[in-house]
Design a protein around this nucleic acid. Structure first.
Lengths: 242, 242
DNA sequence: TATAAAGTATCCCGTAACGTGAGAGTCAAT
DNA sequence: ATTGACTCTCACGTTACGGGATACTTTATA
């Protein structure tokens, strides 16, 4: 899809798409030899994410940080966004209530306190904002990026080592002893780079197959490794829960 | 109320209030001798109006035009804003639907078309936007302001003349012949400055008593004139309806 | 097949609505 | 008398594009 098609589909301007490209927020996967931007389906999904975050008032810079972060999880984001949009709706409903009261008030039918006249305006008290800040605030995202960057050469070696040893047994059952031992090592190793609960760990595994950027990388060590790890990680998480 | 109190009450920053003062959008009625801004209750009502318009995406410049316009009617604005907020809520609900579908889609539970992935984003199709543009668009407001400015000295004289002659009979009944003849002249005269239906004319009369800026001006020609004109205009409108 | 019309690209200046200090005066309470 | 919370006025910085200029590509039409 070319710029104008995308622009009309989602209701934004061509200039906006240019802008997002300029700042590296959304660079089209492909460009024709004439230099025309061509947006892929994946680009559209990213755009959707961007627009959700934008609707919630996130600045573009932070949106970029978030979706570029190695710890970014689309589904997690969608769920958080869902919660925040519901909250925004509640806020809007309050505002509508406020305006209705104000109309009555202007007719002299009811009394209104000063606070009442401004109910719904205060955007800063969204209960999920705090949660979002914790998850996506500067600190959290920076740390995640930092940890990813701080991966030394030896870490990289270790990564590859684990991948290779898991790849070697990827045709066994995900819940066999060897697999679970490998995953155990994996779990403790990646904890260096992020604080994963068992549930998060399981989610991470899911991402290996859901997000093809991961799938591709992992399957370089052996076709089907991503799926195998995903399954084994799920088993591991469930087994160690209680 | 001083800046910080107002800021905290409505959930905006002190700088924002300073800004609104700078651009002449909201100038506090009073200032202490030290130069501290002191906001009156009326200022707060204006601020509420401003914030409603802002929530609906109006630029501050236009907001200023609208609320400064001689044809501005607070209640009319509230009603229009109410409609537009409801529309915004519907849009938000669509977005929430979209996000819910997207979550299902990402789990592979359902299919989604491209259009569906962006439902709710397009802000430009609010049915009341058109209505608002007609009412408050550049043309309408400009014309109103233009007409008000284009009032020549002789027009001003005529204004005063009618006011005076109506003031002279303001103790008669609003539906007596003299009053209705005066109002008839009034109706045809002000039509030069705006296109008033009979209903609008009646509404205008109501404004004379509702909005104290008008009341004050009119009552300069005689205490109670505003109320008298309001009553007589209502009678005139009803009589000439069918 | 020429030629117009529509779409796209980059460059670059403009704007809107504040944010963010800096430096200084003011006010209420200890 | 002093401290701390508030206030003022500059004045420059930032964000997220808007909008024009100019040039190249692609599509539609004669």
């Amino acid at each position: 899809m070319k710029v104008k098609e995308v622009a009309e589909l989602v209701g934004i301007s061509v200039r906006t798409l240019h802008h997002y490209d300029e700042i590296g927020l959304l660079t089209p996967d492909e460009t024709t030899e004439a230099g025309y931007r061509v947006y892929s389906d994946e680009n559209l999904e990213t755009l959707q994410q961007i627009l959700f975050f934008k609707e919630l008032g996130f600045p573009l810079k932070k949106i970029k940080e978030i979706i570029d972060s190695p710890s970014f999880d689309r589904e997690e984001a969608l769920i958080m966004q869902h919660k925040m949009l519901l909250e925004k709706k509640r806020r809007l409903e309050k505002m509508i209530g406020t305006i209705e009261k104000t109309i009555q008030h202007s007719k002299g039918e009811i009394q209104m306190s000063k606070q009442e006249k401004f109910e719904g305006f205060d955007f800063s008290h969204n209960p999920y904002e705090q949660e979002a800040r914790e998850r996506w605030g500067d600190k959290a995202v920076d740390e995640a990026n930092e940890k990813a960057k701080n991966m030394t050469a030896s870490d990289q070696e270790k990564f590859n080592g684990i991948y290779r040893s898991l790849a070697a047994i990827r045709h066994l059952s995900p819940d066999c002893k060897e697999a679970q031992e490998g995953i155990n090592e994996w779990y403790h190793f990646i904890s260096k780079f992020g604080n994963y609960s068992l549930d998060a760990f399981k989610g991470l595994g899911q991402m290996y197959v859901d997000d093809e950027r991961f799938t591709k990388n992992i399957d370089k060590f052996g076709e089907g490794l991503a799926q195998f790890m995903c399954d084994a990680m799920a088993v591991y998480a469930d087994k160690n829960k209680k």
